[in-house]
Simulated scan of single mutants.
Amino acid sequence: MLVAVLCFTGCSNSGNELKYDKSSIKESTEFLINYCQSADDATIQQWEDMDDFNLEYQLMQSGLPYTADGFTSALESWQSGIKECGAYVSHGDFKYETSKDELKVTTAAKFKDRDATLTFVYNQKLKLESMTVDGKYSMGEVLEKAGLNTVLGMGTVFVVLIFISLIISLFRFIPALEEAWKNRGKKSAKEAEAVVVEEATQSASAEAEDVTDDTELVAVIAAAIAEYEGTGTDGFVVRSIRRRPSNKWNA
């Protein structure tokens, strides 16, 4: 019974796998590799500047089983792979892996600087969705890259922590600044009050000086009042002299 169950399970999985024509998939994959190898920067830029409708139309007219996004992303991935691995040299046989909704085609490729793995993914309609170029690094290169990433990450963390510590250390100046800002208004009011008092004092001093210095004017006024009243000048004293707001004399 267990053997029968396993057999039925295997039949069920194989029946759900995506059906494809190996020769046509190989032909379209080979064409894409050759096109990416021969396309220059101007041609790639022309494809990237084209809108989705025209791009889909061009691919449909040529009979190529590529989606618009899959084709442009394949061109970009190839250019990135060239920068990482060097110029393309050759590739080996294709390996096919299927599931119920996609087909994955892989092959080992040789580039000038390092080897790489080319991976092509076709969707359920057997149209190319993506292509990637994965460079193969030695253990030393992997460790060096990992160490560099670790140092860079830790350095960034320490820089951020130092910056946060500096900001926190400045918090102790906030109460003093707040107190100074509060006392600023009080200080201005006190200064204004002091200025008013000083001006009043100067005004009073000026009036006193005017009375003291104008002795002749005081004597003349005192004599005039004494003559008007018919008395002597000993009965009163002129303490201050002020100008009236109006020049008219009141009776």
Rank of each mutant, 00 (worst) to 15 (best):
M1Y: 04
L2E: 10
A4E: 12
F8A: 11
S12K: 14
K19R: 09
D21C: 04
S24V: 14
S24G: 07
I25Q: 09
I25Y: 02
I25F: 07
E30W: 04
F31L: 15
Y35D: 03
C36I: 06
C36A: 12
S38F: 12
S38I: 10
A39L: 07
T43E: 14
I44M: 14
D51Y: 09
D52I: 15
L55M: 13
L55I: 15
Q58K: 13
M60F: 07
P65R: 05
T67I: 08
A68N: 08
D69C: 01
T72I: 13
A74H: 10
A74T: 06
A74L: 04
K83C: 11
K83A: 12
K83Y: 11
V89E: 10
V89G: 04
H91V: 08
H91Q: 12
F94A: 00
T98Y: 01
S99I: 00
D101T: 00
D101L: 00
E102H: 02
L103K: 00
L103P: 00
F111D: 06
F111C: 04
K112W: 06
D115E: 13
A116H: 01
A116E: 02
L118Q: 02
L118D: 02
T119V: 05
T119N: 04
V121L: 08
N123D: 01
Q124G: 00
V133T: 06
V133S: 05
G135L: 05
K136Q: 06
M139L: 11
G140S: 01
K145G: 07
K145V: 03
T150N: 11
G155Q: 02
G155P: 04
T156A: 15
T156N: 15
F158Y: 14
V160M: 13
L161I: 14
I164D: 11
S165Y: 12
S165K: 12
I174Y: 15
R184E: 01
R184S: 10
R184F: 01
G185I: 11
K186N: 12
K187S: 10
S188W: 01
S188P: 01
A189H: 08
K190S: 08
E191M: 04
V195E: 15
V196C: 07
V197R: 09
E198D: 05
T201V: 10
Q202H: 13
S203N: 09
S203M: 11
S203P: 00
A204R: 08
E207R: 10
A208R: 02
E209K: 08
E209G: 04
D210E: 13
D210G: 08
A219Y: 03
I221G: 03
I225Y: 06
A226K: 06
G230K: 01
D234R: 07
D234G: 07
F236P: 03
V237M: 05
R239T: 13
R239F: 03
I241P: 02
R244I: 12
P245K: 11
K248F: 08
N250M: 05
